[in-house]
Design a protein around this nucleic acid. Sequence first.
DNA 1: GCTTAAAAAATGAACGTTCATTCTTTTTTA
DNA 2: TAAAAAAGAATGAACGTTCATTTTTTAAGC
Lengths: 192, 192
Amino acid sequence: MTTISKSQIKRNALVKATINLVNNSGFHATPMSKIAKMANVSPATIYLYFENKQDLVNQVYIEVKAAYTAFAFKDYDESLPVEKGFEIVWKRIAEFKLNEVEQAMFLSQCDNTPMIDEASRQEGLKHLQPLLYLWERGQKEGIIKPISPYLLYAYSIYPLTFLMTMQQRDIFKLNPAHMEDAYLAAWNSIKM
Amino acid sequence: MTTISKSQIKRNALVKATINLVNNSGFHATPMSKIAKMANVSPATIYLYFENKQDLVNQVYIEVKAAYTAFAFKDYDESLPVEKGFEIVWKRIAEFKLNEVEQAMFLSQCDNTPMIDEASRQEGLKHLQPLLYLWERGQKEGIIKPISPYLLYAYSIYPLTFLMTMQQRDIFKLNPAHMEDAYLAAWNSIKM
DNA sequence: GCTTAAAAAATGAACGTTCATTCTTTTTTA
DNA sequence: TAAAAAAGAATGAACGTTCATTTTTTAAGC
């Protein structure tokens, strides 16, 4: 069993509160005082853990991004065949985006607004490397279309962000059948 | 020739300044004073045209969304065959997102953050109806996959938003060949 | 095990700044 | 010259951050 120090608990509460409040109001509309209140902490305490508001949100972004990719690649292994490897990763990404909605929505907001430092954005990007390698391998084997990885991402992964947003706004509820449709659409758009 | 009143010119300058500043800093980080300065107007003048800051951004959202869909459906006509109709609309949407980057980025930010009233969001959604009708017709004719329109949108239109973002951040430059790849990927993901 | 004192962690109130909005005055228009 | 439009300065509230103080933790000596 891993023990968690008391200060870790507080820091976690701050991270969680930040995600929740930023999701509902956006970065500049969530005051430090509200984050503190939600985490049951004095505003001054935040500054023991984070330099300032920008540093807080940058750190949260990087941590959530790391959690996201750890989840995505958990069952993946470079020795798997390309098609199977893609299926595994895609389905984990889908699971994350549709179940860990809070974290996924936070990432989406960070990626679509000027709320995060360019440096932290770069840092977060690194974690997706294994997927790029998988695609490269697939292209060498003639299984994946020889097109820019940005196009591959746009058509096979990015659509999940839209479905997540619709799900979160209660506009559209994904069931397992939709999920299979979505996976096939993703694979069809990148396979040779 | 349509004449434009002086007050229309000022209002347009305010709209343009809002788009530009919100794109670069986000809604809550753009003060009314900056919007006024960029539009060469006193802060107080903004309140002659808009009720308050929220009303300003709501109105800008609705106007830009209307301009977007007017552009998208300009050459479209319900009598066109489904595949041709889709191609025309898709290419116009792509053209808008990749050329009118300022406006398109603004829409993307509005759609991904809590910056806009739910009511205005609904209002903006209406304009996409013709595309939904086109898909419905395509499904009746057995040309388009019988899946939720949300999935159709996620896989055929939404990816353009990602490509636009990458283009705007100078991460990835789309050329006409990419464009054709992208169109084919879109069509393949929704056609039967 | 208990006491105690130094160090660390946490607090609430306060500060200086910034912002949206309004008010009074000036400029422009007709 | 009266009405409409615009301006700039003023206002009050809200915010991020800091500061002086209190509370909690740690560990040494008995």
